[in-house]
Computed example of a mutant assay.
Amino acid sequence: MAAPMVKPVFCTSRSILQGLCGFCSRHAIASRSENVLSKYKTSALQLSKYMSTNRLLKQYSKGDDAESLEEFAADLDVKEKPKKYKAWTPADDVYMIKDYPPKETTFKDAMKRLRTQASWSYVPDREYKDRHIDVTLYLDLNVGEKKLPAFSNLWTPPHHFWKTNKVICIAEGDGAKLAEEAGADLVVGQEQFPEIIEGEITISDFDYCVADQNMVRHLAALKKYLREKFPTAKKGSAGKDVGPLVTKFKHVKKYRVLEKFDRISNCIIGNLGLSDEQIEDNLKFLITDVCTHKPLSAGPLITKLAICGYRLDSYKINLNDYIQQEEQKETIVDTRSELEKIEDELRQLRAS
């Protein structure tokens, strides 16, 4: 048996306004709303593109005459509802933050809010006493018609925080002594290579592996077992001075660009045990390091910045305080190049 045909029901703006007439004053607004309907012919689906139904009902209910409705209808053409959000601003003082686009704030204001949220009584102190603070950097990888490949890098924050990394060092003789004094978790030589190959020493227990430059030529047998932790001079994990090398990798952090989303997500820059000034110094150092991967002449690399605490709200930070520094560096370089050109021209004139 064939299913019965169901006629589609279309809800037009006329039906919305007629429903509002009963909500406010049916016969008072109905006669005055005809001019608006004839001037702004739009459907309920188009109206819902700009704001939620409840907001639409409240806004129309405030209209006393046709002129106020015309002004509101004219505003619809200008203010389009943001994607993935209900509206630009909430209708009252009780709302969900996730339903509206975030507003930019300063770093100090964001940290003040995060510290306030972390001190609320219903947050368990044992588990989240010293929360980490992380940032998400939204990037513009376009350089003309080309696009920068996804990159990753190691950076050492000026102010250390949280736990230190576990480092295994491959060195012998004086280099082994320097590595132990610098705080290496384990120092191995050629005699311990069979233990690594047989699995008695598990490389996955360590975050990084560094090596003395004199030992690099003996590491070919361990390349299969060290994998991405294989120390090389290009990565900066192999060098002559083993002591500073171990100290560096004890506190080093890593960031990586997500190629699919063009952003660096959840890069930890500190914890609540640090002061706001120390966390901001770490943030500035990170931004400076990230911006080196794109020339200044191609435009800013970072377009948005959001800061968040572990299981706390996220806040959008104003980038002007950090991007201006890069612009000033560019102007300084330009002025220097101009001065050099002027000096060259003067020398040529004197010579002639």
Score class of each variant (00 low, 15 high):
His251Asp: 03
Ala211Met: 05
Lys260Tyr: 06
His160Gly: 09
Thr292Leu: 14
Ala298Trp: 03
Trp88His: 15
Leu45Arg: 11
Lys39Asn: 03
Lys223His: 08
Thr331Met: 11
Ser33Trp: 09
Asp289Thr: 13
Leu139Val: 13
Leu178Thr: 06
Gly273Tyr: 04
Cys209Glu: 06
Ile317Trp: 00
Thr232Gly: 03
Glu198Phe: 09
Thr105Gly: 00
Asp334Cys: 05
Tyr122Ala: 06
Ala30Gly: 05
Arg311Met: 15
Thr164Met: 11
Lys39Pro: 00
Glu280Gln: 14
Pro157Cys: 06
Val252Trp: 01
Ala221Lys: 13
Lys253His: 11
His159Pro: 01
Arg217Cys: 03
Asn142Gly: 04
Asn54Leu: 15
Asp281Ile: 06
Leu346Ile: 14
Arg14Asp: 02
Ala306Met: 15
Leu20Thr: 09
Lys79Cys: 11
Lys240Tyr: 02
Leu47Phe: 06
Ile196Ala: 02
Leu286Thr: 09
Val257Leu: 01
Ile201Asn: 07
Gln328Ser: 08
Thr42Gln: 01
Ile197Phe: 07
Leu178Trp: 07
Gln117Asn: 03
Asp64Glu: 12
Thr136Lys: 02
Thr331Ile: 10
Lys129Tyr: 08
Tyr95Phe: 15
Lys108Leu: 04
Ser204Cys: 00
Lys7Leu: 11
Val9Trp: 01
Asn318Lys: 13
Arg55Asn: 09
Pro231Leu: 06
Glu326Arg: 15
Leu154Pro: 01
His160Cys: 08
Arg113Cys: 00
Thr12Glu: 07
Ile268Phe: 05
Gly239Cys: 02
Phe249Lys: 02
Cys21Phe: 11
Tyr255Ala: 09
Leu56Arg: 06
Gly189Asp: 08
Lys129Asn: 07
Glu191Tyr: 15
Tyr95Lys: 00
Lys254Phe: 08
Glu70Ile: 15
Arg26His: 11
Glu280Ile: 07
Cys24Thr: 12
Gly199Phe: 08
Lys248Val: 00
Ala91Trp: 12
Phe249Val: 03
Thr232Ala: 02
Asp241Pro: 00
Asp313Asn: 14
His27Val: 12
Lys49Pro: 00
Arg126Ala: 06
Val187Asp: 09
Cys308Asp: 05
Thr136Cys: 04
Asp174Ile: 09
Gly22Tyr: 15
Glu191Cys: 08
Glu34Pro: 00
Lys146Ile: 06
Glu259Thr: 06
Leu154Ala: 13
Arg350Ala: 04
Val216Ala: 12
Phe285Lys: 10
Gln213Trp: 10
Ser52Leu: 05
Pro90Met: 11
Glu191Pro: 01
Ser119His: 01
Asn282Arg: 04
Leu148Cys: 09
Ser121Gln: 01
Gln213Thr: 13
Lys166Asn: 12
Glu340Trp: 08
Tyr255Ile: 07
Tyr315Ser: 00
